[in-house]
Design a protein around this nucleic acid. Structure first.
Lengths: 235, 235
DNA sequence: CTTTGTATGAGTGTATCCACTATTACAAAG
DNA sequence: CTTTGTAATAGTGGATACACTCATACAAAG
């Protein structure tokens, strides 16, 4: 399941974490929405405490904002912040491909092609699967770098922008899978030139940022002050 | 105070977080050491709970490892992990200088020189201050990028390796401030070429990794199994 | 002497409870 | 009708209490 961690929840706190994370990623809890521990605790049949600690974790990953004595809200990202996340992701994923290059043998390249094919199928089918396949494609490349912390950081960045990507892909006429040129990335990897692959990956990641930003800008001014899903919650 | 966050703790949990973080950074709690909530809670005159939540935060930043039902230990980094952190830091700080370049006017350059001078003074004095001044130097450059999340991530990386840097600087004959060539970075910034500055910063950050690694490797084999400060705790 | 079982204690995870803060609704004054 | 003060309520942070898990020590059996 792309960048999501596998395994069963060993503890109640972990269960709460996964449940809330899922609901944020899927868009059920929207940016700006307030999360009430008691409510969620009831839903999951546990006490407030593990939920509180799950909030902590989410706050550290930037998905949620806890203001002392003022509760926990799903942290909306400003357009500037989204740009920033893409910038960071570009250099980190650039580093990841570069480090992964020595491991791209014939088998790995074949698997990479597989991922691209799966993406295109999902894109053609039109379901919401494309985003997941796309993350898997990136996760596969990053995984070959064999750098656990690097992989974790990149995963966190993917998750942070996922809700926005989701609404974008849902609303936009020209879907991303038509214009996203993953072939260029695969091509660059095939050349075997690590520096080149890094540069191409950077470009590739950065390319989506302005398009997503433009969409969000348009939508936020279209919706005005009555927006149900504000692009920015923090000033 | 370099990469440390300012301000007073608004909540008990925050107080616990700062206290524990400080003790990890300073080396009072050493890698592999187990942290007992009750003990720390007594020390800080509060209950276990805010301490637990502080552990959560520290765990997310990778400074501490929580295994379910098995408590919380200061997470020692393997040499590979230290390398990885330097790799990540190199690309992130590279990005930071590149983005900061437009803001390097005469005043900023003067302040940068100030930082370098302060570093050299601290290095000559020989106290433990050099590390703090060094972090301030990097923090100043990163700060000019005006990218809050990027700055926060870099800060976290600095903190993660700080305990190791500390013992290294303490034990080594040829101190880092003699061989660290910050002048190259400043020089590169002065040229105004963003791409060049990025490349130099990457190089600069990466340069310390192998030397630190070598020191840790030597010490860990010298100390054998009886090491009081193991370089690696996770297998 | 080694191995295996058991008991005890320390430590962890969760639930409940209490005190305090913030927010809201409402009322009185202007 | 607006503004300001006040009361009520919802919600947060923290402390305590309890149940369960794990680890260690020790004893009995091989």
């Amino acid at each position: 399941m792309s960048f999501a961690s596998k395994g069963m929840a060993a503890t109640a706190q972990d269960e709460a974490y996964r449940a809330i994370l899922q609901d944020i990623r899927s868009g059920r809890y929207q940016p700006g929405e307030r999360l009430i521990p008691e409510t969620i605790a009831r839903e999951l049949a546990m006490s407030r405490m593990p939920v509180r600690e799950a909030f902590q974790r989410l706050a550290n990953e930037g998905l949620v904002l806890i203001r002392p004595n003022r509760g926990c809200v799903v942290s909306g990202l400003t357009i500037d912040e989204i740009y920033e996340l893409f910038e960071i992701r570009s250099v980190l994923e650039g580093l990841a491909v570069r480090l992964a290059m020595p491991r791209f043998d014939a088998a790995a390249l074949a698997e990479l092609d597989d991922h691209v094919a799966r993406m295109h199928r999902a894109g053609a089918a039109g379901g919401g699967d494309w985003l997941g396949r796309h993350q898997e494609f990136h996760a596969y490349i990053c995984g070959l770098s064999r750098r656990p912390k690097l992989i974790a950081q990149i995963a966190a960045l993917h998750i942070a922008v996922e809700p926005y990507m989701r609404v974008w892909l849902h609303h936009v006429a020209q879907p991303a899978h038509a214009t996203e040129r993953q072939d260029e990335v695969v091509e660059a990897i095939r050349t075997g030139d690590a520096e080149h692959a890094e540069a191409v990956m950077r470009e590739h990641v950065l390319r989506t940022a302005p398009r997503l930003a433009e969409f969000l800008r348009k939508r936020s001014q279209a919706a005005g002050a009555s927006s149900a899903l504000p692009a920015s919650t923090q000033p």
